[in-house]
Protein backbone atom coordinates (compact mmCIF):
# COMPACT_ATOMS: atom_id res chain seq x y z
CA UNK A 1 0.00 0.00 0.00
CA UNK A 2 2.88 2.35 -0.69
CA UNK A 3 0.95 4.74 -2.92
CA UNK A 4 -1.87 5.18 -0.45
CA UNK A 5 0.59 5.57 2.39
CA UNK A 6 2.27 8.44 0.56
CA UNK A 7 -1.01 10.05 -0.50
CA UNK A 8 -2.40 9.91 3.02
CA UNK A 9 0.78 11.23 4.62
CA UNK A 10 0.91 14.23 2.31
CA UNK A 11 -2.75 15.06 1.73
CA UNK A 12 -4.30 14.47 5.15
CA UNK A 13 -1.40 13.45 7.38
CA UNK A 14 1.65 15.05 8.91
CA UNK A 15 2.91 16.59 5.66
CA UNK A 16 -0.38 18.35 4.84
CA UNK A 17 0.26 21.99 3.95
CA UNK A 18 4.04 21.62 4.16
CA UNK A 19 4.73 22.12 0.45
CA UNK A 20 2.75 25.37 0.40
CA UNK A 21 4.38 26.59 3.61
CA UNK A 22 7.92 25.84 2.47
CA UNK A 23 7.29 27.39 -0.96
CA UNK A 24 5.82 30.50 0.66
CA UNK A 25 8.80 30.86 3.02
CA UNK A 26 11.15 30.49 0.06
CA UNK A 27 9.55 32.94 -2.37
CA UNK A 28 8.75 35.47 0.38
CA UNK A 29 12.40 35.38 1.46
CA UNK A 30 14.03 35.63 -1.96
CA UNK A 31 11.41 36.95 -4.37
CA UNK A 32 12.45 36.80 -8.01
CA UNK A 33 15.62 34.80 -8.72
CA UNK A 34 17.01 35.81 -12.10
CA UNK A 35 19.91 33.98 -13.71
CA UNK A 36 23.31 35.28 -12.69
CA UNK A 37 22.16 37.14 -9.58
CA UNK A 38 23.43 36.86 -6.05
CA UNK A 39 19.89 36.24 -4.81
CA UNK A 40 19.64 33.13 -7.00
CA UNK A 41 22.86 31.79 -5.46
CA UNK A 42 21.56 32.56 -1.97
CA UNK A 43 18.33 30.71 -2.78
CA UNK A 44 20.37 27.68 -3.94
CA UNK A 45 22.30 27.74 -0.66
CA UNK A 46 18.97 27.96 1.19
CA UNK A 47 17.61 24.86 -0.60
CA UNK A 48 20.79 22.94 0.21
CA UNK A 49 20.45 23.79 3.90
CA UNK A 50 16.73 23.01 3.86
CA UNK A 51 17.57 19.57 2.48
CA UNK A 52 20.28 19.00 5.08
CA UNK A 53 17.80 19.95 7.78
CA UNK A 54 15.81 16.91 6.63
CA UNK A 55 18.86 14.70 7.24
CA UNK A 56 19.41 14.25 3.52
CA UNK A 57 23.07 14.94 2.86
CA UNK A 58 23.81 13.41 -0.55
CA UNK A 59 23.81 16.80 -2.25
CA UNK A 60 26.03 17.88 -5.14
CA UNK A 61 26.28 21.20 -6.92
CA UNK A 62 27.68 21.55 -10.40
CA UNK A 63 28.96 24.93 -11.52
CA UNK A 64 28.33 26.43 -14.92
CA UNK A 65 28.47 29.82 -16.59
CA UNK A 66 25.09 31.51 -16.95
CA UNK A 67 23.90 34.79 -18.47
CA UNK A 68 23.36 37.74 -16.17
CA UNK A 69 21.04 40.12 -17.97
CA UNK A 70 19.76 42.95 -15.79
CA UNK A 71 16.77 45.07 -16.73
CA UNK A 72 17.10 48.81 -16.33
CA UNK A 73 14.62 51.60 -16.96
CA UNK A 74 12.09 50.84 -19.69
CA UNK A 75 9.45 53.19 -21.10
CA UNK A 76 7.21 53.12 -24.11
CA UNK A 77 5.20 56.16 -25.13
CA UNK A 78 2.82 56.55 -28.04
CA UNK A 79 3.47 60.04 -29.43
CA UNK A 80 1.05 60.00 -32.38
CA UNK A 81 -1.88 60.03 -32.90
CA UNK A 82 -2.07 60.87 -29.19
CA UNK A 83 0.20 60.63 -26.19
CA UNK A 84 -0.19 57.48 -24.12
CA UNK A 85 2.26 55.67 -21.86
CA UNK A 86 2.29 51.91 -22.34
CA UNK A 87 3.40 49.12 -20.02
CA UNK A 88 6.20 46.95 -21.35
CA UNK A 89 8.78 44.35 -20.40
CA UNK A 90 11.98 44.02 -22.35
CA UNK A 91 12.58 40.47 -23.58
CA UNK A 92 15.51 38.48 -22.26
CA UNK A 93 18.96 39.68 -23.28
CA UNK A 94 17.50 42.49 -25.37
CA UNK A 95 19.98 45.19 -26.34
CA UNK A 96 19.45 48.73 -25.14
CA UNK A 97 18.22 51.77 -27.02
CA UNK A 98 20.19 55.02 -27.31
CA UNK A 99 19.69 57.26 -24.25
CA UNK A 100 17.06 59.33 -26.03
CA UNK A 101 15.28 56.17 -27.07
CA UNK A 102 14.09 55.12 -30.49
CA UNK A 103 11.33 57.21 -32.02
CA UNK A 104 9.77 55.60 -35.06
CA UNK A 105 6.57 54.77 -36.87
CA UNK A 106 5.18 51.27 -36.35
CA UNK A 107 4.10 48.50 -38.67
CA UNK A 108 1.69 45.95 -37.17
CA UNK A 109 1.79 42.34 -38.38
CA UNK A 110 0.15 39.24 -36.99
CA UNK A 111 2.57 36.67 -38.43
CA UNK A 112 5.93 36.22 -40.09
CA UNK A 113 4.06 35.58 -43.34
CA UNK A 114 2.42 39.00 -43.05
CA UNK A 115 5.82 40.57 -42.30
CA UNK A 116 7.20 38.99 -45.46
CA UNK A 117 4.50 40.69 -47.54
CA UNK A 118 6.14 44.03 -46.74
CA UNK A 119 9.19 45.07 -48.72
CA UNK A 120 12.37 45.81 -46.80
CA UNK A 121 11.92 49.51 -47.59
CA UNK A 122 8.48 49.43 -45.90
CA UNK A 123 10.04 48.06 -42.71
CA UNK A 124 13.34 49.92 -42.70
CA UNK A 125 13.56 52.38 -39.82
CA UNK A 126 10.23 51.22 -38.35
CA UNK A 127 9.22 49.49 -35.14
CA UNK A 128 7.53 46.17 -35.90
CA UNK A 129 4.69 45.07 -33.62
CA UNK A 130 3.74 41.38 -33.76
CA UNK A 131 0.19 40.86 -32.53
CA UNK A 132 -0.65 37.17 -33.01
CA UNK A 133 -3.69 36.10 -31.01
CA UNK A 134 -2.75 33.48 -28.40
CA UNK A 135 -3.75 30.01 -29.52
CA UNK A 136 -1.26 27.74 -27.81
CA UNK A 137 2.04 28.71 -26.23
CA UNK A 138 3.94 26.58 -28.74
CA UNK A 139 2.28 28.23 -31.70
CA UNK A 140 2.65 31.84 -30.61
CA UNK A 141 5.91 31.86 -28.65
CA UNK A 142 7.91 31.86 -31.88
CA UNK A 143 7.02 35.54 -32.28
CA UNK A 144 8.65 36.24 -28.93
CA UNK A 145 11.73 34.11 -29.49
CA UNK A 146 12.42 35.00 -33.15
CA UNK A 147 10.47 38.21 -33.75
CA UNK A 148 13.29 40.68 -33.22
CA UNK A 149 15.72 38.80 -35.45
CA UNK A 150 13.22 38.50 -38.29
CA UNK A 151 12.17 42.15 -38.03
CA UNK A 152 15.82 43.27 -37.91
CA UNK A 153 16.57 41.26 -41.03
CA UNK A 154 14.12 43.51 -42.86
CA UNK A 155 15.59 46.68 -41.43
CA UNK A 156 13.38 47.33 -38.39
CA UNK A 157 14.87 49.37 -35.55
CA UNK A 158 12.94 47.69 -32.72
CA UNK A 159 10.49 44.84 -32.21
CA UNK A 160 7.40 44.75 -30.01
CA UNK A 161 5.22 41.79 -29.19
CA UNK A 162 1.63 41.29 -28.04
CA UNK A 163 2.31 39.37 -24.81
CA UNK A 164 2.06 35.58 -25.08
CA UNK A 165 -1.04 35.07 -22.98
CA UNK A 166 -4.76 34.47 -23.48
CA UNK A 167 -5.78 36.93 -20.74
CA UNK A 168 -4.59 40.25 -19.41
CA UNK A 169 -5.32 43.00 -16.95
CA UNK A 170 -2.82 45.27 -18.70
CA UNK A 171 0.05 43.00 -17.71
CA UNK A 172 3.09 42.63 -19.97
CA UNK A 173 4.74 39.18 -20.02
CA UNK A 174 8.54 38.78 -20.10
CA UNK A 175 10.32 35.92 -21.85
CA UNK A 176 13.39 34.91 -23.75
CA UNK A 177 14.28 35.83 -27.30
CA UNK A 178 17.25 35.02 -29.49
CA UNK A 179 19.24 37.08 -31.96
CA UNK A 180 20.64 35.59 -35.13
CA UNK A 181 24.20 35.87 -36.34
CA UNK A 182 24.81 38.45 -39.05
CA UNK A 183 21.54 40.24 -38.24
CA UNK A 184 21.61 43.52 -36.29
CA UNK A 185 20.51 43.17 -32.68
CA UNK A 186 17.52 45.44 -32.08
CA UNK A 187 15.65 46.15 -28.82
CA UNK A 188 12.77 43.75 -28.21
CA UNK A 189 9.92 44.05 -25.71
CA UNK A 190 6.47 42.69 -24.91
CA UNK A 191 3.49 44.99 -24.44
CA UNK A 192 0.04 44.24 -23.05
CA UNK A 193 -2.84 42.72 -24.99
CA UNK A 194 -4.78 45.90 -24.38
CA UNK A 195 -2.15 48.20 -25.87
CA UNK A 196 -1.35 45.84 -28.74
CA UNK A 197 -5.01 45.68 -29.66
CA UNK A 198 -5.34 49.47 -29.37
CA UNK A 199 -2.39 49.90 -31.73
CA UNK A 200 -3.86 47.34 -34.13
CA UNK A 201 -7.19 49.16 -34.26
CA UNK A 202 -5.57 52.54 -34.93
CA UNK A 203 -3.22 50.99 -37.51
CA UNK A 204 -6.11 49.26 -39.30
CA UNK A 205 -7.83 52.63 -39.67
CA UNK A 206 -4.80 53.82 -41.62
CA UNK A 207 -3.62 56.30 -39.02
CA UNK A 208 0.07 56.97 -38.52
CA UNK A 209 1.40 55.73 -35.17
CA UNK A 210 4.69 56.98 -33.75
CA UNK A 211 6.24 55.46 -30.63
CA UNK A 212 9.20 56.34 -28.44
CA UNK A 213 10.90 53.29 -26.90
CA UNK A 214 13.55 53.51 -24.19
CA UNK A 215 15.14 50.35 -22.85
CA UNK A 216 18.31 49.99 -20.81
CA UNK A 217 19.97 46.82 -19.54
CA UNK A 218 23.32 45.23 -18.81
CA UNK A 219 24.42 41.79 -19.95
CA UNK A 220 27.34 39.73 -18.69
CA UNK A 221 28.05 36.24 -17.34
CA UNK A 222 28.31 34.73 -13.89
CA UNK A 223 28.78 31.32 -12.31
CA UNK A 224 25.71 29.48 -11.04
CA UNK A 225 24.95 25.91 -9.99
CA UNK A 226 22.68 22.99 -10.74
CA UNK A 227 21.79 21.22 -7.50
CA UNK A 228 21.49 17.42 -7.33
CA UNK A 229 19.91 15.71 -4.32
CA UNK A 230 20.30 11.93 -4.39
CA UNK A 231 18.10 9.51 -2.46
CA UNK A 232 20.07 6.35 -2.97
CA UNK A 233 18.48 3.20 -4.36
CA UNK A 234 18.84 -0.09 -2.53
CA UNK A 235 19.44 -2.50 -5.41
CA UNK A 236 20.38 -0.44 -8.46
CA UNK A 237 21.86 2.77 -7.01
CA UNK A 238 23.52 3.66 -10.32
CA UNK A 239 20.12 3.79 -12.05
CA UNK A 240 18.38 7.16 -11.77
CA UNK A 241 14.81 8.35 -11.72
CA UNK A 242 15.08 12.12 -11.92
CA UNK A 243 12.48 14.57 -10.65
CA UNK A 244 13.10 18.23 -11.32
CA UNK A 245 12.09 21.85 -11.51
CA UNK A 246 14.04 25.06 -12.08
CA UNK A 247 15.08 27.35 -9.27
CA UNK A 248 15.70 30.52 -11.28
CA UNK A 249 12.86 32.79 -12.35
CA UNK A 250 12.22 35.91 -14.37
CA UNK A 251 12.89 39.21 -12.68
CA UNK A 252 9.18 39.93 -12.20
CA UNK A 253 6.81 38.52 -9.60
CA UNK A 254 8.05 35.93 -7.12
CA UNK A 255 8.50 32.95 -9.43
CA UNK A 256 6.09 31.10 -7.16
CA UNK A 257 4.33 29.35 -10.04
CA UNK A 258 7.23 29.37 -12.51
CA UNK A 259 8.81 27.36 -11.20
CA UNK A 260 8.66 27.53 -7.42
CA UNK A 261 5.87 24.96 -7.33
CA UNK A 262 7.77 22.53 -9.55
CA UNK A 263 10.93 23.08 -7.53
CA UNK A 264 9.19 22.32 -4.24
CA UNK A 265 7.23 19.24 -5.30
CA UNK A 266 10.52 17.85 -6.67
CA UNK A 267 12.36 18.76 -3.48
CA UNK A 268 9.54 17.06 -1.54
CA UNK A 269 10.11 13.67 -3.20
CA UNK A 270 13.27 12.61 -1.31
CA UNK A 271 12.06 14.44 1.80
CA UNK A 272 8.74 12.57 1.96
CA UNK A 273 10.30 9.21 1.12
CA UNK A 274 12.99 9.75 3.76
CA UNK A 275 10.42 10.69 6.37
CA UNK A 276 8.41 7.55 5.54
CA UNK A 277 11.58 5.45 5.34
CA UNK A 278 10.58 4.21 1.88
CA UNK A 279 13.64 3.17 -0.10
CA UNK A 280 13.19 2.34 -3.78
CA UNK A 281 15.43 -0.01 -5.73
CA UNK A 282 16.81 2.79 -7.95
CA UNK A 283 18.18 6.16 -6.91
CA UNK A 284 15.82 9.12 -7.04
CA UNK A 285 17.69 12.27 -8.00
CA UNK A 286 15.98 15.60 -7.42
CA UNK A 287 17.51 18.30 -9.61
CA UNK A 288 17.03 22.05 -9.20
CA UNK A 289 17.99 23.40 -12.61
CA UNK A 290 19.57 26.81 -12.81
CA UNK A 291 19.14 29.41 -15.57
CA UNK A 292 16.19 27.77 -17.33
CA UNK A 293 14.56 31.02 -18.30
CA UNK A 294 17.39 32.31 -20.47
CA UNK A 295 17.58 29.15 -22.57
CA UNK A 296 17.70 25.88 -20.56
CA UNK A 297 21.30 26.71 -19.68
CA UNK A 298 21.49 24.45 -16.62
CA UNK A 299 19.91 21.45 -18.33
CA UNK A 300 22.22 21.77 -21.33
CA UNK A 301 25.25 21.84 -19.03
CA UNK A 302 23.98 18.78 -17.14
CA UNK A 303 23.32 16.83 -20.32
CA UNK A 304 26.82 17.61 -21.59
CA UNK A 305 28.52 16.78 -18.29
CA UNK A 306 26.62 13.51 -17.77
CA UNK A 307 26.33 12.38 -21.40
CA UNK A 308 28.45 9.29 -20.84
CA UNK A 309 26.12 8.18 -18.01
CA UNK A 310 22.87 8.86 -19.85
CA UNK A 311 22.11 5.14 -20.09
CA UNK A 312 21.69 5.14 -16.34
CA UNK A 313 18.75 7.55 -16.48
CA UNK A 314 15.80 5.21 -16.19
CA UNK A 315 13.19 7.99 -16.37
CA UNK A 316 13.26 11.78 -16.09
CA UNK A 317 10.44 13.95 -14.78
CA UNK A 318 9.90 17.70 -14.62
CA UNK A 319 7.21 20.03 -13.40
CA UNK A 320 7.44 23.42 -15.14
CA UNK A 321 3.89 24.05 -16.32
CA UNK A 322 2.20 24.74 -13.05
CA UNK A 323 1.44 22.80 -9.91
CA UNK A 324 -2.31 23.05 -10.03
CA UNK A 325 -4.37 19.90 -9.38
CA UNK A 326 -2.46 16.96 -10.90
CA UNK A 327 -4.24 15.12 -13.69
CA UNK A 328 -1.54 12.65 -14.74
CA UNK A 329 1.61 12.70 -16.82
CA UNK A 330 2.58 13.88 -20.31
CA UNK A 331 4.89 11.08 -21.40
CA UNK A 332 7.62 10.68 -24.00
CA UNK A 333 8.78 7.18 -24.76
CA UNK A 334 7.97 4.10 -26.76
CA UNK A 335 4.71 2.15 -26.56
CA UNK A 336 5.98 -0.15 -23.83
CA UNK A 337 7.07 2.82 -21.71
CA UNK A 338 3.71 4.51 -22.11
CA UNK A 339 1.91 1.30 -21.15
CA UNK A 340 3.99 0.95 -17.98
CA UNK A 341 3.27 4.57 -17.04
CA UNK A 342 -0.38 4.10 -17.87
CA UNK A 343 -0.54 1.18 -15.44
CA UNK A 344 1.22 3.25 -12.77
CA UNK A 345 -1.25 6.10 -13.26
CA UNK A 346 -4.10 3.69 -12.48
CA UNK A 347 -2.84 3.82 -8.90
CA UNK A 348 -4.00 7.44 -8.67
CA UNK A 349 -7.74 7.03 -9.21
CA UNK A 350 -8.45 8.37 -5.73
CA UNK A 351 -7.04 11.78 -6.67
CA UNK A 352 -8.18 11.77 -10.32
CA UNK A 353 -4.64 11.82 -11.68
CA UNK A 354 -4.83 8.91 -14.10
CA UNK A 355 -4.49 10.63 -17.48
CA UNK A 356 -1.61 9.76 -19.75
CA UNK A 357 -0.95 12.34 -22.42
CA UNK A 358 1.29 11.36 -25.29
CA UNK A 359 3.89 14.07 -25.80
CA UNK A 360 7.13 13.60 -27.70
CA UNK A 361 8.76 16.59 -26.05
CA UNK A 362 7.31 17.14 -22.58
CA UNK A 363 8.71 19.69 -20.17
CA UNK A 364 11.25 22.42 -20.77
CA UNK A 365 14.65 21.54 -19.25
CA UNK A 366 14.12 17.79 -19.58
CA UNK A 367 13.41 18.14 -23.29
CA UNK A 368 17.19 18.57 -23.67
CA UNK A 369 17.68 15.07 -22.24
CA UNK A 370 14.56 13.43 -23.70
CA UNK A 371 15.68 14.35 -27.21
CA UNK A 372 18.72 12.11 -26.67
CA UNK A 373 16.36 9.14 -26.28
CA UNK A 374 15.75 9.11 -22.53
CA UNK A 375 12.09 8.42 -21.62
CA UNK A 376 10.42 11.04 -19.46
CA UNK A 377 7.33 12.95 -18.43
CA UNK A 378 6.13 16.30 -17.25
CA UNK A 379 3.36 16.92 -14.76
CA UNK A 380 0.01 17.12 -16.52
CA UNK A 381 -2.09 19.41 -14.36
CA UNK A 382 -5.20 21.56 -14.39
CA UNK A 383 -3.26 24.57 -15.63
CA UNK A 384 -5.70 26.37 -17.90
CA UNK A 385 -4.85 29.66 -16.15
CA UNK A 386 -1.07 29.12 -16.23
CA UNK A 387 -0.34 31.61 -18.99
CA UNK A 388 -2.40 34.31 -17.31
CA UNK A 389 0.42 34.65 -14.76
CA UNK A 390 3.41 33.34 -16.71
CA UNK A 391 6.45 35.70 -16.59
CA UNK A 392 4.48 38.55 -15.00
CA UNK A 393 4.39 40.50 -11.77
CA UNK A 394 1.33 38.36 -11.02
CA UNK A 395 3.40 35.19 -10.54
CA UNK A 396 3.14 35.25 -6.77
CA UNK A 397 2.01 32.94 -3.96
CA UNK A 398 -1.56 34.03 -4.64
CA UNK A 399 -1.53 31.74 -7.69
CA UNK A 400 -0.78 28.71 -5.52
CA UNK A 401 -3.33 26.58 -3.71
CA UNK A 402 -2.33 24.67 -0.58
CA UNK A 403 -4.42 21.56 -1.28
CA UNK A 404 -3.43 21.37 -4.93
CA UNK A 405 0.24 21.58 -3.94
CA UNK A 406 -0.35 18.70 -1.51
CA UNK A 407 -1.95 16.68 -4.30
CA UNK A 408 0.94 17.50 -6.61
CA UNK A 409 3.64 16.64 -4.08
CA UNK A 410 1.90 13.39 -3.17
CA UNK A 411 1.37 12.37 -6.78
CA UNK A 412 4.91 13.33 -7.81
CA UNK A 413 6.46 11.43 -4.90
CA UNK A 414 4.40 8.28 -5.29
CA UNK A 415 4.78 8.15 -9.08
CA UNK A 416 8.56 8.61 -8.84
CA UNK A 417 8.76 5.98 -6.12
CA UNK A 418 6.89 3.33 -8.12
CA UNK A 419 8.92 4.01 -11.28
CA UNK A 420 12.12 3.79 -9.23
CA UNK A 421 11.07 0.60 -7.48
CA UNK A 422 9.41 -1.69 -10.03
CA UNK A 423 11.44 -4.69 -11.13
CA UNK A 424 11.60 -3.66 -14.79
CA UNK A 425 13.66 -0.77 -16.14
CA UNK A 426 11.70 1.71 -18.23
CA UNK A 427 12.52 0.66 -21.80
CA UNK A 428 14.19 2.95 -24.33
Amino acid sequence: NVVNEILNYVIVGEYKGQTYNELAKFVDKFGARPSGTEVLEQSIDYMIQLTRDENINDITTEELTVPHWTRGEETLTMLEPRVKNMALLGLGRSVTTPPEGITAEIVVVNSFAELDKYSDSDIEGKIVLYDPIFTTYGETVQYRSQGAAKAAAKGAVASLLRSITPFSINSPHAGSQYYEENVPKIPAAAITLEDADLLRRIYSRGEKIVLNLKMFSTDNSRISRNTLVDYKGTEKPEKLVIVSGHIDSWDVGQGAMDDGGGLFISWAVPVILNRLNLKPRRTIRSIFWTAEELGLIGAKAYEEKHRSEADNINFIMESDEGTFAPLGLAVAGNAETRCIIKEILKLFKSINATTLVEDDSPGSDIAVIIQTGVPGASLHNDNSMYFWFHHTEGDTMNVEDEHELDLGAAFWTAAAYVIADISKDIPR
Binding site: I340, L347, I422
Partner: peptide, 25 residues
Protein backbone atom coordinates in the same frame (compact mmCIF):
# COMPACT_ATOMS: atom_id res chain seq x y z
CA UNK B 1 -4.30 12.42 -26.17
CA UNK B 2 -4.77 9.20 -24.28
CA UNK B 3 -3.15 6.23 -25.93
CA UNK B 4 -3.00 2.45 -25.85
CA UNK B 5 -5.98 0.42 -24.78
CA UNK B 6 -5.58 -2.06 -21.96
CA UNK B 7 -5.56 -5.07 -24.26
CA UNK B 8 -2.66 -3.58 -26.23
CA UNK B 9 -0.75 -2.85 -23.03
CA UNK B 10 -1.45 -6.31 -21.66
CA UNK B 11 0.34 -7.78 -24.64
CA UNK B 12 3.16 -5.25 -24.56
CA UNK B 13 4.12 -5.40 -20.90
CA UNK B 14 2.56 -8.65 -19.67
CA UNK B 15 0.29 -9.63 -16.81
CA UNK B 16 3.08 -10.10 -14.29
CA UNK B 17 4.28 -6.50 -14.52
CA UNK B 18 0.72 -5.21 -14.48
CA UNK B 19 0.05 -7.18 -11.30
CA UNK B 20 3.31 -5.98 -9.78
CA UNK B 21 2.42 -2.34 -10.46
CA UNK B 22 -1.09 -2.83 -9.10
CA UNK B 23 0.41 -4.14 -5.86
CA UNK B 24 1.77 -0.68 -5.04
CA UNK B 25 -1.67 0.80 -4.49
Amino acid sequence: KVVYKDDVCNVLIGDDLIAEIASYE
